[in-house]
């Protein structure tokens, strides 16, 4: 389309100049030459797209994939790729091993909790409180002045109810994000491998009581697929094992709860895997359900490499 537009427009501009030559417009600047440059760029970009499409139509899926792989072999590109040449389709662990631990070798970063709900709750809370306050002040003033506006009074009732709900929802969301203190998770070595053992250390700060505090190692599959015009993602837990459980713990401010544990990675499990639409992810999940209030769940992604018997490391 771009190619056609550029070609037609460029031809029109040049032909009109040949048929009705106007030497004054041939000067550089806005006008003829600018049109020529813009239309020529359309032709070049569109032509490139046409050639690429023609090439893809003629090449097999394997050939195209091989060309992509060849390009990925270039040093500058390969360093920017999400997986290394030595372990294709396994994410790099640079982000997981760049923080040394205090007790064990690595301190794992936590997967960020989505804050969009808190942001939305804050916006609704602020907006609704402002509107409700103004309406309530006007209603009260009318009543004090012995000239009640009953329509506005009736309008204020659902507004106040909605405002109560917004305040409650905002503080619940705020509690989810701030009630529990930071969780620190350390690991003795990384990446993990099947048939190997590793030590973990977890510390939980805050001020609350937990009937149960658990750490689980979880493997989850993730598949992204197109359904009509939507893109959907489905996840399924295929492996989960509890590696630490502490019951009835009380965490005091300034004295974080700390625990060590050892775990064995079983043999025959799938390694971490990442491709365009499919993934296998491993993570530690720290869970706690307090006596009252929202429960806590924090995830710490980890990589599991294959247990290579004679592969190149």
């Amino acid at each position: 389309m771009l190619f056609l537009l550029g070609a037609v427009a460029l031809t029109t501009v040049i032909v009109s100049q040949i048929l009705n030559p106007t030497p004054e417009v041939l000067r550089p600047g806005f006008g003829f030459w600018l049109m020529v440059v813009v239309m020529a760029s359309f032709v070049l970009l569109g032509g490139g797209g046409v050639m690429l499409t023609a090439f893809q139509a003629g090449a097999s899926i394997e050939r195209r994939s091989a060309l992509v792989r060849q390009a990925a072999g270039i040093d500058l590109i390969s360093e920017a790729l999400p997986s290394s040449q030595q372990h294709p389709n396994i994410p790099r662990d640079a982000d997981l091993t760049n923080s040394p631990g205090v007790t064990l070798v690595f301190r794992l970063p936590t997967a960020q909790m989505p804050v969009w709900r808190l942001t939305l709750a804050t916006l609704v809370f602020l907006l609704l409180t402002a509107v409700t306050s103004v309406v309530c002040v006007i209603v009260v003033n009318h009543h004090l002045a012995q000239t009640p506006d009953w329509f506005l009074t009736l309008f204020a009732v659902p507004l106040v109810i909605a405002n109560f709900w917004a305040v409650k929802y905002f503080f619940t969301e705020l509690g989810v994000h701030t009630r529990h203190g930071p969780t620190c998770f350390e690991i003795s070595h990384h990446p993990l491998r099947p048939n190997s053992e590793c030590e973990i250390f977890v510390s939980q700060a805050g001020r609350f009581s937990l009937p149960a505090f658990t750490v689980a190692l979880v493997c989850e599959e993730e598949a992204t697929y197109s359904q009509g015009t939507d893109i959907r993602t489905e996840t399924r837990v295929v492996y989960e094992t509890e590696v630490l459980r502490q019951e009835d713990i009380r965490i005091e401010a300034g004295t974080p709860f700390e625990a060590h544990s050892r775990l064995s990675i079983p043999g025959g499990v799938m390694h971490s895997f990442q491709s365009g639409h499919n993934a296998v992810r491993w993570k530690f999940v720290v869970r706690g359900t307090p006596v009252s209030g929202p429960s806590m769940a924090r995830t710490f992604p980890v990589l599991v490499y294959p247990d290579n018997q004679n592969g190149q490391e």
Partner: peptide, 20 residues
């Protein structure tokens, strides 16, 4: 001739060529 892996299942198919 090629040696390759591909995915099956719920997600859209991915493919990687190891030898071509």
């Amino acid at each position: 001739t090629s040696v390759l892996w591909y995915t099956e299942g719920k997600g859209d198919e991915d493919l990687g060529v190891h030898y071509f």
